[in-house]
């Protein structure tokens, strides 16, 4: 897949980093401000898609990236399940038990396990969307051959 013109490349270079940083901020502050794992994960995937569309990539590199993104997707959904089971083993026997200390409302480190769930869901959503996008791009590459 070919990249775009130099103007698009320069603008994407300036913007993609900020979009990525904003996604991380939204995930990390998910329990305090609007947003959370879903929105932040979609933003992270958007930053990747922007840089791939602007710069282009060759076939083998795309294949490699697809393997990595589907791997991180599987690992993150496994981590969500393990966190839920860990809640069941500690304290009262309830699946999805919030077993960590709650802290005070409004601090960055508070709300027990919810920030951890936010981070894992963010990785899951980002890598799932990236996998779907990469599958489409790779399909188009293979047709053109």
């Amino acid at each position: 897949m070919k990249g775009m013109s130099i103007i698009v490349k320069k603008v994407a270079q300036l913007i993609a980093g900020f979009v990525f940083l904003y996604g991380i901020y939204i995930i990390a502050h998910g329990h305090l401000t609007p947003g959370g794992g879903f929105a932040g994960g979609a933003l992270l995937a958007g930053a990747y898609i922007l840089s791939i569309l602007a710069y282009g990539s060759d076939y083998l590199k795309l294949k490699e990236e697809q393997t990595e993104s589907s791997l991180s997707e599987s690992i993150s959904i496994l981590l969500i399940l393990m966190l839920a089971v860990a809640g069941m083993l500690m304290g009262i026997k309830v699946f999805f038990n919030n077993f960590l200390p709650k802290g005070t409302i409004g601090e960055l480190i508070s709300a027990g396990a919810i920030p951890l769930y936010n981070i894992f869901i963010g990785i899951e959503v980002a890598s799932a969307l990236l996998t779907i996008f990469l599958a489409l791009i790779i399909y188009k590459e293979e047709i053109e051959e």
Partner: peptide
């Protein structure tokens, strides 16, 4: 839950 954002 200790979370300020009720939706989360």
């Amino acid at each position: 839950t200790g979370s300020a954002n009720l939706v989360t």
